[in-house]
Simulated assay, not measured.
Amino acid sequence: MLHSLPSGLKISISRSISTVFEQYMEKIGWDEKKYNIEDFIKQWQVYINEHASWYDKLSDDIKKDPSFHEELAAKINETIQKILSEAPTDEQMKTIENLQRKHNNKDSYSCKMEAKFLINSLKSKTK
């Protein structure tokens, strides 16, 4: 069912998952111990109801269909896995190394999105 949606709609769904995942992870400071999939899903549901224009384009039948929700859950997992497996860029790693040296800090990070968070966090300490 999800696969039969127009391409633009599928892209919008993926973007909304990525956007909310980034917001959620920032909210918990990228602390894996604080991660809770149910909390993330609640935050995503609020986002799609209040900010996602694609949600209004779905028919009520699709929104109520259990198979759509199963496919959507798989898409959420796939998108999160893709985010977590995307390696930080060389530029991000150099920036983090310089900022950590400056702040006598040694935080770890494992993906591009987490590196972005760490850079922003370290830069805000500089100000």
Rank of each mutant, 00 (worst) to 15 (best):
Q23T: 10
E78M: 07
L58V: 14
L118K: 14
L99P: 09
H51F: 10
A52E: 14
N49H: 10
W54E: 12
E32M: 07
F68V: 01
L2V: 00
T95P: 09
M93N: 10
H69Y: 12
L84Y: 14
P66N: 06
L72Y: 07
S59I: 04
M93K: 14
T89E: 12
L58H: 07
S110F: 11
T19K: 02
K116A: 12
I119E: 15
V20T: 01
L5C: 03
K10L: 08
I80C: 13
K33G: 09
I13F: 13
D107Q: 12
E91I: 09
K116N: 13
D65P: 05
T89F: 05
S4W: 08
I48W: 15
E26V: 07
K10S: 00
L122P: 12
I17E: 00
L2Y: 09
S67D: 08
K27D: 10
K112Y: 06
P66I: 13
S108M: 14
N105H: 10
K106P: 05
D65M: 00
G8P: 00
H103Q: 09
E22Q: 12
L118Q: 04
S59G: 05
N49C: 08
D39G: 08
Y24K: 04
E22L: 09
F117A: 14
L72R: 00
L122R: 00
K94C: 04
K125R: 10
W44R: 02
Q92R: 03
S18W: 00
S53F: 03
S59C: 02
Y35Q: 04
K75A: 05
Y55L: 04
L72N: 05
S7I: 14
F21A: 07
F68R: 01
M1Q: 12
Q92A: 05
M113P: 06
E22A: 11
I28Q: 11
E50M: 06
D56P: 08
N49F: 15
Q100N: 02
T79Q: 08
V20G: 02
S110V: 14
H103G: 03
F117L: 08
I83P: 15
N105C: 10
K75W: 00
N98I: 12
K127Q: 03
W44A: 00
F21D: 03
N105E: 09
E91L: 08
R15V: 15
F40T: 05
E86A: 01
D107F: 11
